[in-house]
Design a protein around this nucleic acid. Structure first.
Lengths: 245, 245
DNA sequence: CGTCCTTTTGAGAGCGATCAAGCGGGGTGG
DNA sequence: CCACCCCGCTTGATCGCTCTCAAAAGGACG
């Protein structure tokens, strides 16, 4: 798992340039990150649903999950956060998280107090701009997923989830456009798609049988026929890329 | 349909006080609203999916819908915006809307260019704070709905949608806590809940038969047994109120 | 070599979609 | 004023997708 600040796609000048030369290193993005850097092993829970928190998470490496659960144990993965993602686990009840945050892989992140982040945003329009962009991208992703959760057949939901993760991985140079790895079990992919693990398995198998993709040892995905995938997922690849990246 | 600036729940001082006395009236919130006020009749489409837009919408009165559609005509209502809501129809592709925006009732709104709004946010932390709060509330709502869309039975999805709208209506003094009106058809409620209109009807009927609620002429809802509703919706009423309001 | 977790495959059941027909209210035109 | 029509609601019947339960196979790890 590479770790790279560049994945926080900020103008290089902001990251390493003027800001660093300021007197108070903590006021710079680089300083903020250094000061609040944390590591967490795969499978750890960072924040529980409803727990108080006053930090935003800047993901430097590794994958995070935001999930919600119902009383009966049903679980839904609300969003998956890749390196470079910014996570604000907030709801209207300020300071309380609407979702549970857990790591999917070993993760390096900066847990930056909201106030400091806001300060950085105020001083640097670039950071503010990026924050905003990341948030609306997350909402676009959620919207696109929501329509398929509600109405589309399993094949469409899964194909969409795979396309989304493929595009996002590729954008971060974690994939080459057709091959990528998902550090999730079929059970977790099911929680993401609103399907049972059994049905995820069947659907992946059917897609593989039809030569649309192949899945090898623990979610190494190769898409053989991107046109077919796009058709099944009911997306236009380029439009989706523009919308969610 | 009452129209009231107060529903934009800002400190009164900001709305009518210091800001108004500033030299440039357009720089004040009140001035911004006055300058960009628009009216639209029920059923009109304000923005198409993918259309360019550079404004945020501040809803002064009436209800709006944010929807997405699939190629086969399937439609999902992503969010419902009540008076006092702020809508930023953006996706990562800046200036392009991820959703279609349409009016559910006659609507009064202020379509404020994003740059002006950002300006107001920069000058007035209160406005910035409120904008942020409204956005995270919208994301919390979407998250809570998403888990039920994916996994819960129809009864739960519908009960949740009704509880959500009841709480939000009550918070804006459009309802008294148990009685409220939804300006939507059962078809639209189905698009919101990921269900067919037929099944919405059956489910509402069953809830009515069990004395949980009653529905009269075109979606005037009375909740008779809020405990039962909360149980069916799988929510804690107070927790949900804190989370989404 | 045994244990645990994940994946795979089969069989049966249930929920919600779809198709279809009937009902009812409000608006329009005769 | 009445007849008609359109749209939304209601209810029944059938179908199909996806869940659940169950069992077995494949891997990772001690």
């Amino acid at each position: 798992m590479r770790e790279c600040l560049e994945e926080i796609r900020l103008p290089k000048a902001v990251l390493a340039g003027e800001m660093i030369r300021q007197a108070d290193a903590k006021a710079t993005l680089g300083g903020l990150i250094t000061a609040h850097r944390r590591e967490s092993p795969a499978g750890s829970v960072l924040i529980l649903e409803g727990e108080e928190t006053s930090s935003i998470f800047l993901v430097l490496s590794g994958w995070l999950l935001a999930t919600k659960s119902l009383a009966d144990g049903q679980r839904q993965i609300i969003d998956i956060i890749l390196p470079g993602g910014i996570l604000e686990p907030a709801c209207a009840d300020r300071g309380r998280s609407a979702v549970e945050i857990q790591t999917l892989t070993d993760v390096t992140l900066a847990a930056i107090p909201r106030k400091r982040w806001r300060g950085a945003c105020d001083r640097h329009p670039d950071i503010d701009e990026m924050t905003h962009r990341v948030i609306v991208a997350a909402m676009s992703r959620m919207s696109a997923r929501m329509i398929r959760l509600g109405k589309a057949p399993a094949e469409t939901v899964i194909a969409f989830a795979l396309c989304e993760l493929c595009l996002r991985s590729t954008a971060r140079a974690l994939a080459d456009g057709t091959q990528f790895h998902i550090p999730m079990t079929q059970q977790q992919l099911g929680d993401f798609c609103g399907l049972s693990a059994v049905h995820v398995c069947r659907t992946l198998r059917r897609l593989a049988r039809n030569d649309v993709l192949s899945v090898k040892d623990h979610m190494n995905i190769v898409i053989h026929d991107m046109d077919a995938m796009a058709r099944i997922a009911e997306i236009d690849v380029e439009a989706l890329r523009a919308e969610i990246i």
